[in-house]
């Protein structure tokens, strides 16, 4: 024992020191530090859980947002399509209306112009008649007046060739003086046309010219005069 250096006093000192150190280390290091470490571990675990939950929530929110966005997008597309369709309808409606209006205006203007011309021509009728009568009377020796006109029309109808009856199409009637409605109806009925347009051309001097798609009947004074002139020559 002596040679090994074992000394009960030293061992006792060591024992006391060990117990003291054990108590102090436990009191001031192990217990508090273990608590701190456990707390921190729990905190970190909780933080990780929270983060996982937050991540899941975010993912859900993102999915929802994506869904909402898709819905909104499709709705917007629908609205756009609708608007486009409606706009096109409106545009075409407007265009059509405008076109109709334009056509109407054109027609009105044309009608008015025709009416105005007819009126003017009507106003000039007497003069023209007088001039025509004068000329005709000078040429024919007789004057043309309304009665003459009527007779000319009647003779025209009477002399109307057979192939010009019952045409059933659209015809154009040219007269030297505006025809009255009765005359117009008469002519239309004689010819058998379904549609007739009437125009005034004083240069034919008198009588009527009826044109259709297949040919024409010239019962005008001018052509008669020309015929006469050719016969004379």
């Amino acid at each position: 024992m002596e040679a090994l250096g074992i000394n009960p006093g030293t061992m006792l000192i060591w024992l006391i020191a060990f117990i003291m150190l054990y108590v102090l280390l436990t009191r001031f290091i192990y217990d508090p530090l273990t608590n701190v470490l456990n707390e921190r571990r729990n905190r970190i675990a909780k933080g990780l859980d929270d983060a996982a939950a937050a991540a899941a929530a975010r993912q859900n929110a993102e999915a929802e947002a994506e869904k909402i966005l898709a819905q909104a997008r499709s709705e917007a597309q629908k609205v756009i399509d609708e608007a486009r369709g409606r706009g096109e309808d409106v545009a075409s409606g407007i265009e059509q209306e405008a076109r109709q209006t334009a056509a109407k205006i054109q027609y009105d203007a044309q009608t008015e112009a025709v009416a105005t011309r007819n009126a003017e021509l009507g106003n000039l009728r007497e003069q023209v008649l007088q001039i025509s009568v004068a000329v005709a009377s000078r040429i024919l020796g007789e004057s043309i007046d309304a009665a003459k006109q009527q007779s000319l029309v009647n003779s025209f109808i009477a002399e109307l060739p057979a192939d010009a009856r019952g045409l059933g199409g659209s015809i154009e009637v040219v007269s030297a003086m505006p025809l009255t409605a009765d005359e117009q109806t008469q002519i239309t009925g004689e010819v058998g046309a379904s549609d007739a347009s009437f125009s005034v051309d004083p240069s034919i001097l008198g009588g009527l010219i009826v044109r259709w798609s297949g040919g024409m009947v010239d019962g005008s004074v001018r052509s008669q005069l020309s015929q006469m002139g050719r016969n004379l020559n």
Partner: peptide
């Protein structure tokens, strides 16, 4: 022993009071 006592004092002073 003295070094260990100093160590105890050092750790006890530096140790955070809680896990946060």
């Amino acid at each position: 022993w003295v070094l260990l006592l100093l160590f105890i004092v050092y750790i006890a002073r530096r140790r955070p009071s809680d896990g946060s």
